[in-house]
Amino acid sequence: METVLAFVIGGLYAAGVFLMLRRALARVVLGIAILTNATNLLIFTAAGLTRGEPAFIDEGETLLSEPYGDPLPQALVLTAIVIGFGVLAFAMVLIYRAYRSVGSEDSDHMTTTEFEDGER
């Protein structure tokens, strides 16, 4: 399955980067969303996949018994999902604000931090 997911991840990266190369800021943020998913999947896959063996210690046991899905990348990805959402939410508000300020969602109209003449 890792081989299949490798191509899925590659496809997601291609889609994400393609979206981030667009001038429309809505697409840029969509691209960030796709890249977040791609990266989470990358970390998850790179550690190796195990089917149907969550890292739970059974009742009455004190040690995790083999086989089990590696808990370490899962902990990392869990953090990454939440942080990724924070970044995405902020980016969305930012493009909304930028659109309201500049009157355009074209990132090429946002090449300077100063107001240009006649532009608010």
Binding site: E2, T3, L5, A6, F7, I9, G10, G11, L12, Y13, A14, A15, V17, F18, L21, R22, A38, L42, T45, A46, G48
Partner: peptide, 22 residues
Amino acid sequence: RDAALSLAVGATMTLLVLGVVH
């Protein structure tokens, strides 16, 4: 042009994953 660049990135990531998992 952008699609070509994006596909290059995607291919790179695919190769990376294939290289890493085993």
